[in-house]
Design a protein around this nucleic acid. Structure first.
Lengths: 204, 204
DNA sequence: ATACTGAACATTCAAGATAATATTCAGTAT
DNA sequence: ATACTGAATATTATCTTGAATGTTCAGTAT
């Protein structure tokens, strides 16, 4: 990644990168990743297609950067929910799951283009989605530990439990599944799953 | 479905159907659904391809029948676990989840051909997989109700809870996911999920 | 040296042609 | 009538090829 900055130059490298990403992002969102050509992105930035390669390794690299940003936004939304520390941890868990569901559904329903891009990128760059999963995992751990600290939760192994939660909400995280039901059905299911995760089956 | 039987005929209709299904099943398992031709199935049964259509509507219909049988086997395995009534319900739930995981993983690892077939069929005949899901759902309900009857479980809404469990074990039911981890990792996760479903997070 | 371009080259996509296969049906044997 | 077949037809998959696009690079301007 390029980390240099030219504070006294009118058009620093990182600005060019940002301009390219903006142009590409708009095209990808409107016409899809595959239908967008490097020539078009270049034209939007008043440069040649060849010049794009001075700033990004290739088209996939542009896509990856956008996908990263996309996943970062997603992560930030979750973080915001987790850090509503005035709310009980149980409620925040509930909100996290609904947040994830809502985002997945939105992606699928309102912006199949973006989804196409993210899919394409994730196929090629597994590490990006891995990083996202790891960050999400850590946010769940943060939430669980907070719940334990506040004496709301009793959790023998936070690490395992966080993994179990991630596993249990798979249905809400994968856009592919969104065609199975409508949003209300998913929300109902999400509530049931959270309910189950909170109280468990065993008699107390 | 043909339900007539010719008890005094040496080669009754239903035997021919069975012969065709056996031949097709072997071909599908060995070479895959798409690579198997109707002519080949017919040759295995010493008949013309045209004659197959007297017993099955089309190729997909042959595949559907095999897929049904496949899912019925799966269901039977689950049923057997559920009905081990000498075991505690909690243990049986654990075994059901591991059973499902093991079957999904097996399908994916040892027999991609069969999997290809089931996928092809399910794409075309959603009602088959729906029926399977419904039956599985009912088995889970049976297990939960038994757990409640024995005073092991305390469950406000069995219907909702069964749906929640089905949802939570999505990762173990979809062959597509099997490439993500190795079997041991999945088993560890399955145990964590069951643990979570049994005890819940909330302090008691 | 640095920023950039146009043209060359490599790869991917898509439309059309071809071949393989599924399905139907008229016709034969019993 | 019933069980079945071979050949005809419809559908689907595979291959081919030209065009479009991604990528590289020698060369130009500053």
């Amino acid at each position: 990644m390029n980390t240099r900055t030219y504070s006294n130059t009118p058009s620093p490298t990182c600005d060019v990168r940002a301009r390219i990403l903006t142009a590409a992002g708009e095209r990808f969102a409107q016409f899809g990743y595959n239908k967008t050509t490097m020539a078009e992105i270049a034209k939007d930035c008043d440069m040649s297609a060849a010049n794009l390669y001075r700033f990004f390794k290739n088209k996939l690299d542009i896509g990856s950067n956008l996908a990263c940003a996309c996943l970062d936004t997603k992560l930030l939304l979750i973080k915001n929910v987790v850090q509503q520390t005035q709310q009980p941890a149980a409620e925040r868990l509930h909100n996290v799951v609904l947040q994830i569901l809502s985002h997945t559904h939105n992606e699928w329903a309102n912006n199949p283009r973006i989804n196409e891009m993210v899919t394409a990128i994730c196929d090629a760059r597994l590490e990006i989605v891995n990083q996202y999963e790891l960050n999400r995992h850590n946010l769940i751990i943060e939430l669980l530990e907070d719940g334990v600290r506040r004496d709301e939760f009793s959790i023998p192994d936070v690490q395992d439990t966080a993994e179990a939660i991630t596993t249990a909400i798979t249905l809400f995280s994968v856009p592919l599944f969104m065609s199975l039901h409508n949003l209300e059905t998913f929300e109902k299911r999400a509530k049931s799953v959270v309910q189950l995760m909170l109280s468990g089956l065993e008699k107390r």
